[in-house]
Design a protein around this nucleic acid. Structure first.
Length: 438
DNA sequence: TCTGGGGTCCTAGGACCC
DNA sequence: TCTGGGGTCCTAGGACCC
C-alpha cells in the first residue's frame, strides 16, 4: 500500500539540548537559555518547566527564583545551535527523499510515495529518531500524518506520550488526535484566533474541523482558514519546499524565495550619540551584507530602524524607519553601509535615548543577474571589489566574525553591544577553541 | 537598571494608468 | 441623476510561526 505521509521531526528543548551535549553534567537538571541581550527565557529544560518557568519570561523578573532553584542559565549561542542543527538535518536527509527545514529545530520529511505498511513506517520513525540521538546527542519527537498540519499535531501528541513517535494513519486516529488537541494548539492558530474561536464555542481541533469550511474561512482570514480546514481533514494543501543545505548560523527560514534579510539588536544600555549609533548600524549593515552574499543575493532597498524604549508609555511610536533606495542592487558591504548610515542620519534626533537599532535589506534579486543601469552603464560591482568581499567573508568565517571589518564599524566591546553574561564556548565553530582542544 | 530576533502570508486602501 | 472599470504597484497593518 502506498501511504501519502509527511513526518515532522522536532528537537526537544533544542537550545538547552545543544548546551547539554557539551555540558553533560546538566543532563537531568534544570537549565534555561536566554534570548539575545540576556532579555528573556527562550528555551527551558523539562525540569525548568516543572519548576514553573515560562517561555518568554523576562530574565530580570525571574532571576532570583532561578538562583534559588539552582537553575543553570546560558546566554544564547547561535553559532553552536546553527551547527548542531546542520548535523541533525544531515542525519535526517539519510532517511527521506526530501527534507524541508522549517526552523532551526524542526524539519519536515517527505514520505510520499513510500510503498510501505503502516507498522513499518512507525518503526522507521523510531529508527531515525534513534539515529539522530546517537549521531548528535539531540533528543527529538516525530509526528507522522497525511498532511503537514496533522504531522505538526501528531508531533505535539508525541511529546506527551511515552513513545516519542506518533503516527496518524486512519480517519479514526486523526479524529481522536483532533479531539485531544485544544484549538489554540493547532499550527496556524495564534492567541487572537484562539480567543475568537473559543467565544464561538470552538474548544478543540475536532470542533473546528466539524464546522463547514465556509464558516472557518469567515472566521480565520479567508484563504488561510480554508487551507487550514482542509489540512485538518487530511487533504494536503500546503506547499512542499525542499531545502538546500544552508550555511547559516542563525534563525532562518530557508528556501530560495526569501524576500528580506534583517539584523536588529537591542543595546546593552541606551545610546544617544550619533557616533556610537553609527558604529552599531555599520556593524549591523555588515552582518546583513554577509547574509546576502551567503545566499547569493543583492538588495535594492536598505531600511534602517531606530527604536526607543518599547515599554515606556508614550504617544510617539517606539520604532521609526528610514528607507534608502539604491539605483543598483548590491551586496557590497561599503555601499550598503553608506546607505544605512544615510538612513541613520535622517532618523537620528539629538537627545533621544535609543534602545535598539536594525538594518533590513529588501528588494532582493539574485546577485549578478540584476539589470545594468543603462544610463551609467555601471556593472553592479567592479571585480576587485567582489574579490575583496569574498576574502573578507572567508577570513571572518575562518577566524571569527569580527576579524576583519570596516573602520566605520566598532572596536571590541562597545557600549551598545548586548549583554551575554552566560555564554558557553563555541565548541564546534570557534577557531581558538578548537586550537585549545588539541 | 533589567522585557529577543527573524521571518512569512494576507488584506485593505490609495495612487496611478489605460 | 449620473459621475467607468480593471490592473498593478506600493504601503501599512494584522495575523501567524519558531
Amino acid at each position: 500500500m502506498t501511504l501519502t505521509m509527511y513526518a515532522l521531526v522536532d528537537c526537544n528543548n533544542f537550545y538547552v539540548s545543544c548546551e547539554r551535549v557539551f555540558a553533560p553534567q546538566w543532563q537531568g537538571r534544570p537549565v534555561v537559555v536566554l534570548s539575545n541581550n540576556d532579555g528573556c527565557l527562550i528555551s527551558r529544560s523539562d525540569e525548568a518547566k516543572v519548576l514553573g518557568f515560562k517561555m518568554g519570561e523576562p530574565y530580570h523578573q525571574v532571576r532570583p527564583l532561578l538562583e534559588l532553584s539552582q537553575v543553570k542559565v546560558f546566554s544564547s549561542n547561535y553559532a553552536l545551535y546553527g551547527d548542531m542543527s546542520r548535523r541533525v538535518v544531515q542525519v535526517l536527509s539519510e532517511f527521506a527523499a526530501g527534507v524541508e527545514v522549517y526552523s532551526i529545530d524542526e524539519a519536515f520529511l517527505d514520505f510520499r510515495g513510500m510503498n510501505w505498511l503502516a507498522p513499518d513506517l512507525q518503526r522507521y520513525g523510531e529508527q531515525l529518531r534513534e539515529r539522530v540521538w546517537r549521531a548528535t546527542g539531540i533528543p527529538t519527537c516525530v509526528g507522522i500524518a497525511p498532511t503537514k498540519t496533522l504531522a505538526k499535531l501528531a508531533n505535539r501528541l508525541a511529546r506527551k506520550q511515552l513513545n516519542p513517535v506518533k503516527m496518524l494513519n486512519s480517519k479514526a486516529e486523526c479524529q481522536a488526535a483532533l479531539a485531544q488537541t485544544l484549538v489554540g494548539d493547532v499550527w496556524g492558530i495564534g492567541r487572537r484566533y484562539a480567543r475568537k474561536l473559543r467565544e464561538q464555542g470552538i474548544m478543540t481541533a475536532a470542533d473546528l474541523a466539524a464546522q463547514p469550511e465556509s464558516w472557518v474561512r469567515r472566521y480565520l482570514g479567508g484563504v488561510v482558514g480554508g487551507r487550514l480546514w482542509r489540512e485538518l481533514h487530511g487533504q494536503p494543501c500546503l506547499e512542499w519546499n525542499p531545502s538546500e543545505h544552508e550555511d547559516d548560523d542563525e534563525h532562518l527560514t530557508p528556501g530560495i524565495g526569501r524576500h528580506s534579510v534583517t539584523h536588529t539588536r537591542s543595546f546593552g544600555c541606551p545610546q544617544q550619540e550619533l557616533a556610537a549609533l553609527s558604529e552599531a548600524v555599520a556593524t549591523f549593515a555588515a552582518r546583513t551584507a554577509e547574509k546576502l552574499r551567503r545566499h547569493g543575493l543583492a538588495a535594492h532597498l536598505v531600511t534602517v530602524l531606530l527604536g526607543t524604549d518599547r515599554y515606556a508609555p508614550g504617544i510617539e511610536p517606539a520604532t521609526r524607519t528610514a528607507v534608502v533606495h539604491l539605483p543598483i542592487a548590491t551586496h557590497d558591504t561599503p555601499l550598503l553601509t553608506q546607505a544605512a548610515l544615510r538612513g541613520l542620519r535622517q532618523l537620528h534626533r539629538p537627545g533621544v535615548a535609543y534602545h535598539r537599532a536594525g538594518v533590513l535589506l529588501s528588494g532582493l534579486e539574485t546577485a549578478g543577474q540584476g539589470q545594468l543601469d543603462l544610463f551609467t552603464s555601471l556593472a553592479p560591482l567592479p571585480p576587485a571589489r567582489l574579490q575583496l568581499m569574498t576574502v573578507l567573508d572567508r577570513l571572518n568565517n575562518q577566524f571569527g566574525r569580527h576579524t576583519v571589518r570596516l573602520a566605520a564599524a566598532a572596536g571590541p566591546n562597545p557600549g551598545w553591544a548586548g549583554r551575554r553574561a552566560y555564554q558557553s564556548p563555541a565548541y564546534t565553530t570557534d577557531w581558538e577553541n578548537l586550537w585549545q582542544l588539541k
